[in-house]
Simulated assay, not measured.
Amino acid sequence: MRLVPWQPDDLVRRLPDVVAVYGEAMGYRKELLETRRGYIAAHVRRPGFRAVATLTTDGQLAGFGYGYTSAGGQWWHDQVRSALSDAERRTWLTDCFEVVELHVRPAAQGHRIGSRQLRALLAMAAGSTCLLSTPEADEKTSRAWRLYRGFGFIDVLRDFHFPGDERAFAVLGRELPLAADRRDAAPAAERA
């Protein structure tokens, strides 16, 4: 497998594969995936857009991640902003890179793909902070949670409900940039 940076056109060209990986990883219904296709295609035009992909030796998409500069007027940013205090907004949203999606096909999980993707994405990110959201889960058994904790993400919001999704989410954050003099991921995160 090889990790590659993606330009906006690369992601759009592989959009059916991106949506398929997203659906498998998140367990979303097919109807929801069709609406996500348009959102994902629009995200590539956002300021600060950065993306990575993990490709198998035969070119199949095993995983991907992308993000951009979080700003007012963006749906996710505005949802999170409304739940934060003024001080938290200044801390987390003033100069923030938002990890929008980071997914690995379930069949490819457990081979450090998520860790490599997140490290590469954060290394390319502009901003002084980074935020992401992930479904609430058991932190000890969830690969995603172990990955994010291993990279130093802390709780910003817990049990948060986004409109249109019945599940509770956590919003996690960390400062940027990644430290150059040490590994940012704990050994457990490497298994994600």
Rank of each mutant, 00 (worst) to 15 (best):
A137E: 14
H103R: 08
T141I: 09
A170H: 13
W75I: 12
T141R: 15
P5H: 10
A71Y: 02
V21K: 05
F49I: 01
F153Q: 07
V99A: 00
A180L: 09
L15M: 15
A41M: 02
R90M: 04
G23H: 06
Q7C: 05
H77P: 06
R182F: 01
S82R: 13
G114D: 00
F49R: 03
Q79A: 12
A144R: 00
R46C: 07
D78R: 12
S85G: 14
L121Y: 00
H161T: 14
V44D: 08
F97K: 00
F49A: 06
G63M: 05
V18L: 10
A168F: 06
D9F: 02
A186E: 14
G110D: 05
S133L: 02
P135V: 08
D9T: 12
G110Y: 09
H77R: 09
H161F: 10
Y39K: 11
W145Y: 13
G164M: 03
V44L: 07
L121S: 07
F151S: 02
E98F: 07
A125Y: 07
E98C: 07
R182I: 06
R182K: 14
A53K: 01
R81G: 04
T129S: 13
A137C: 02
W75Q: 11
A120V: 12
L178S: 03
R167L: 11
A83M: 06
A71W: 03
R2K: 15
V19Y: 11
G150P: 07
G150W: 11
A185Y: 10
R89S: 09
C130D: 01
R13W: 01
P135W: 11
G173M: 03
A125I: 08
R167W: 00
M124V: 03
R143C: 00
E101P: 11
G63F: 08
V19K: 08
R174C: 02
R50D: 02
V44P: 10
A123N: 11
R167S: 14
G72V: 12
L61K: 02
T134H: 01
